[in-house]
Nucleic acid binder design. Structure first.
Lengths: 210, 210
DNA sequence: AAATGTGAAGTTGTTCACAGCT
DNA sequence: AGCTGTGAACAACTTCACATTT
């Protein structure tokens, strides 16, 4: 599972592999055992050739004339994505969005568990019960180290984002899912995925002009 | 403001324009009047040449030897993105995530207002007070037509997503910000932006393997 | 016959290098 | 002198066409 030595798979391909995995899961639920690249591609919203090229980056799993075994392909993709091993995740910044993400069921379904949350005001009254503990920011570095946390969801206000990010990285985090609307400056061995909801809407508004 | 007749600007450029706009806003807050492509690019996390190429798609705004006027460039970009006119938005699916999005301040700050929410169980007890009305699904089509709504945020469960999407489109929606984890089938004049939080995490977990 | 796997062609997006203003 | 604007080179990604396998 080392990055080193294996062919570099484009980011976009990795992203689509996740989509394929979800489509395959639905096929399995419907007890469908085999699928062609054409059918799977259609479900995933891509062209059949692209699906095949994506898979070709890390192996050949199909049977010519027949298609792909749904279960086998699921496993191969999951294995490639490294999702097979459950990753512990922390969430920092328990505001509106942070609360919602804590109660969002979509993560655990995919093998991620948010094991703890951190906030500058951990005891502040919140509208909702959640199962994860909300801890103080002071305790974050030790927690990250003790639990070997590599991934964090960052949902603090813009003004705090860079400082919190620095602190997390120093303690051992190497992957950040960043919901704050600023571009984080990080060392190059740290990966940041930005999710900016306002930009997504703005983007949409541009393309619907007719 | 017609799409027709103006040079096609790549999606990625449009996305980056939104980022530039936010960086410029911060510069303005700090009373900085002029900025070079190098400085702005750094703030936005891109290369200076890319910034200049992005701007070149719709005009030339800089002064050689000096840089860009912060206020002027902000206006030009905002104008190009069409954000100058406030867009009414509806949200469909008031679960955990939907609730959070309704209370999320980031949208209105950027000129979007969620004017109403719709849910299959509009009167279900919710933990939190929100200012938008939660209406029944039945009333959605008429509401869309009456208010000329073009953009919708879709946060219903996967099983309902396609059906709800069809209904919205039929009533006049042409842009969907889709949080449900399926690929929507839509006519080609309808724009869909997908935000899949589980995929973002999965993607991150892939790239942090070392 | 049906569907995969893949080299080659095509397309799109990024970076370079430098000419041209101020 | 400094910094933008842009054609040309480059790199990345997508699609095509078809040989290959079951």
């Amino acid at each position: 599972m080392k990055k080193t030595g294996r062919p570099v798979i484009p980011r976009k391909t990795i992203y689509r592999l996740s989509i394929y995995l979800r489509c395959l899961a639905r096929l399995r639920e419907n007890s469908i055992g085999t699928v062609s690249s054409e059918a799977l591609a259609k479900a995933a919203g891509v062209k059949p050739t692209q699906l095949r090229k994506d898979l070709a980056y890390f192996g050949t799993f199909g049977t010519r004339g027949l298609g792909y075994d749904v279960t086998e392909l699921s496993q191969k993709i999951a294995n490639e994505l490294g999702t097979s091993s459950l990753q512990p995740v922390i969430l920092v910044g328990v505001g509106n969005l942070g609360m919602a993400l804590l109660s969002y069921r979509g993560f655990e379904k995919e093998g991620f568990e948010i094991i703890a949350a951190f906030d500058a005001a951990p005891t502040r009254k919140r509208d909702k019960e959640i199962k994860q503990p909300i801890l103080s920011m002071d305790s974050m570095p030790a927690f990250i180290r003790e639990h070997g946390v590599k991934m964090a969801i960052l949902s603090v206000p813009a003004a705090a984002a860079q400082a919190v990010s620095n602190q997390m990285i120093e303690s051992g985090v190497t992957g950040i899912l960043n919901f704050s609307p600023i571009v984080l400056a990080v060392p190059e061995d740290v990966m940041v995925n930005n999710v900016n909801l306002a930009i997504e809407l703005e983007n949409l508004s541009y393309f619907i002009q007719d």
